[in-house]
Design a binder for these strands. Sequence first.
DNA 1: TTGTAGGCGTTATCAC
DNA 2: GTGATAACGCCTACAA
Lengths: 338, 338
Amino acid sequence: MSNIYKVAKLAGVSPKTAARILAGESQRSKHRQAVFDAAKELGYARNQQAANLRSGSTSVIGIIVPDINNPFYGKVIQSMHDACLKHGFSILLASSFGRPEEEARAMRTLQSYRVDGVMLNASEHPVGKESLKICRHFIEQGKPVVLSGEIEEKLPGADRVVIGNELAVSKAVRYLQSQGHERIGFIGGFEDSRAIQQRHAGYVTTLKECDLPLLDEYTIYTNGDMAQVGSKVTDTMLKLSKKVRPTAFIAGNDIIAISALKAFDKLSLKVPADVAVIGFDGIDLSEMVTPSLTTLRQPQTQIASDVVQLMVQRIKGETTIGASELHYEPELIIRDST
Amino acid sequence: MSNIYKVAKLAGVSPKTAARILAGESQRSKHRQAVFDAAKELGYARNQQAANLRSGSTSVIGIIVPDINNPFYGKVIQSMHDACLKHGFSILLASSFGRPEEEARAMRTLQSYRVDGVMLNASEHPVGKESLKICRHFIEQGKPVVLSGEIEEKLPGADRVVIGNELAVSKAVRYLQSQGHERIGFIGGFEDSRAIQQRHAGYVTTLKECDLPLLDEYTIYTNGDMAQVGSKVTDTMLKLSKKVRPTAFIAGNDIIAISALKAFDKLSLKVPADVAVIGFDGIDLSEMVTPSLTTLRQPQTQIASDVVQLMVQRIKGETTIGASELHYEPELIIRDST
DNA sequence: TTGTAGGCGTTATCAC
DNA sequence: GTGATAACGCCTACAA
């Protein structure tokens, strides 16, 4: 592999001169063309790791998500990727698989690559003890940490992204009530996700506030996969008599909502005539399913753009504002499933 | 940030001894515990960039995909990520946005990080000239390059993933014919993607072989987004009389197929009674839409696992077999949309 | 504008 | 098993 010395030698200048020209510092050096020619000739590409090692920063932001395969996180990753690109940063991606020990492994990887900042999406479980420790290391070194999701211990110095999960679901419940629904169910789905639990809390609270019936049977939880959503929903609907069964459901996320649509179709229940469904997240496909899904859309692109901007400002020392909370309220997008 | 010297000093050994113990080389050194304690005490994390710089390898595999947001590539990324993890590798992700110039930028990024190998997903367009050049650099250095998708010039030394696009669509056409369909359409959708063009070629060839009618109007192309699929499909169906319009469509991918389902629903056409639909890719959601989608499933997990295994073997020098082609035939999954 | 010296943190080499 | 020394490729500091 060629390095700056070979380029400099071929161009007949000192390494430093070559480096400066290639870094775009000396705009009108007389050796400019010679250096570029030499670099091209040798197929030179800067060794970013060596540069990082020397300069002490990487221009890389680490991102941890619970599940790369969920289209919602796909959007998160894409949005972060695009936002980083605009600021000349790259992303290093790692998955926590929604498990604390894998999260810790992922954090260690980011740490060993000395990323300049970390965006930790931890909406499925509270941030693990070891991850938390590594986060503190980052913060001590002045490296920004942005946390999206639940946390049990305090993490001073970390920025937070806060999604108004409870309020959003509250909006959904009230909307359903305004449409004449009284018996409203909640489909939690997946893995005791904290985000989904918050959404459930919003559901419970609002039902009480609105004097709507709150039965245990109205909440469906599964700890399995998408297929299980279908069977649990089916069980619930068959178990309850027509007069008691919910006429509307709020789902913990869009994937769960789409699975529920399928279950209702199999039961020959028409959506929204027999039963209404509201999802959460606003993934692209929520618009394309049939019927299109009413959902609580999270402003993913906006969030990513804000988060990256904040991180980059901190990294460059352009801001020293203390840890901030970025609040976002999901928007109720009304479509054909209600 | 602490380094190996500080750890060594605290443990009372030489840097090399500490390094060896932390790298897991000296299993029964008497200083083992002391070194681990010191590392923990100081919150030591190896600087991977320095290690890479010295050792000349990174244990990172670079992945380029056209569109992170498409659930199909989400699955690709996840599968590659998981497979890499098993072999102790990390991934560096970059998006080509389906454009040659962005692909080149992405390749330069991977190159500057000295990744040990590259998996280039280029199914949307042929690999760009500059990317190709960088690929050659990788190959010259003995770094494996795996190409999935189209390529115009030869790239000696690169492994290839070849999906039997034509054959797969051929299977789909013949299956539709066996179900009594004669007028079969093709919905290309997106961006002149090469993969979709191959699938279209399979469609054209097989229609001819089966003596089925092949009209220009039966092929729908858009160069826009998902929404455009819907409007073009609607146009086509309204333009053609009932006796001429297709009774079945093959879509270029599942996302397009799902968009088409939506369009048919809006037209009050029942799927599959009035019109059948077959997708391509087999994304998870294809099973959850209503009606569930008959599709040609690509064995993503298998492909990723094979690709990573091959790359890791090459990187470790465990194989010197010449460039190979990994062939995969999509499987026709019959569901409710046909 | 240009060049020289040195060090970032690690591992390879070669001695013991 | 252990330790001193050099080197990976680059950039910062400083000097010219």
